Amino acid sequence: MDLHVCWPFETFETFEAFEALIAEYEVAKDPHYYAILDASGAPVGIASLMRINPDAGSIEVGGIAYSPALQQTPAATEAMSLLMSYAFETLGYRRYEWKCDALNAPSRRAAERLGFQFEGIFRQALVYKGRNRDTAWFARTDQDWPAIKSAHANWLAPENFDAEGRQRQSLRAFLSPC
């Protein structure tokens, strides 16, 4: 079998190589990966909490990979909302970050859609796949969380979706301007 799984930092030639990395992540403290399951319990995605800095009270969400079954669904938004809730309400962090390649337009749109505030570009932040990578920074704080949580809950409410599952109002309509 010639399986190519693309990951931000590695390409896997076999499923076994991918499984070996997942086994390492099962016991890692940072990044700490979470499986995203659909309503039936089938895995449909993965995300991590990373760059965990308890002294600074900051934590980042990253390593996000969604299967086509999860992409652009309410469950995708719910997964991100649940991780944000966990970081602020259970773990007690004061800052929740999202960073991505500045050229990754879908990731930047997702961050903004979810209510993250754009903070700027860190130019030549690292070398990635043989090129200089500029990194776009987004974040929310514990002070922002109550409004974000309310917006997510209102967007995810069943009455915001019609019988075919289409949203009546966008998430942006529920979010207050930054």
Rank of each mutant, 00 (worst) to 15 (best):
M1F: 05
D2A: 08
E10C: 03
T11G: 02
F12H: 13
T14E: 03
T14D: 05
A17C: 04
A23C: 02
E24H: 01
H32N: 03
H32Y: 09
Y34C: 03
Y34P: 00
A35H: 01
A35R: 04
I36M: 09
D38T: 08
V44L: 10
G45A: 11
I46V: 14
S48P: 03
I52Q: 10
I52F: 10
N53E: 15
D55K: 14
G62K: 06
S67L: 13
P68I: 10
A69Q: 15
Q72D: 07
T73E: 00
A75C: 01
A76C: 07
T77I: 04
A79G: 04
S81R: 15
L82N: 05
L82F: 04
M84K: 12
M84I: 12
F88G: 05
E89T: 08
G92E: 05
Y93K: 01
R94F: 04
E97H: 09
W98V: 06
D101C: 04
N104R: 01
P106M: 03
R109H: 07
R113T: 11
L114N: 12
G115Q: 12
G115M: 13
G115I: 10
F116Y: 13
Q117R: 14
F118R: 08
G120S: 12
G120V: 14
G120F: 12
L126N: 06
L126C: 07
V127G: 02
V127S: 05
K129H: 14
R131I: 05
N132Q: 08
R133N: 03
D134I: 04
D134H: 07
W137T: 04
A139H: 02
T141R: 04
D142S: 13
D142M: 06
W145E: 13
I148S: 13
I148V: 15
S150K: 11
H152G: 06
A153R: 11
A157D: 14
A157C: 05
P158V: 06
E159P: 06
A163N: 10
E164R: 04
G165P: 01
R166A: 03
R168Q: 14
L171M: 10
A173L: 10
P177R: 00
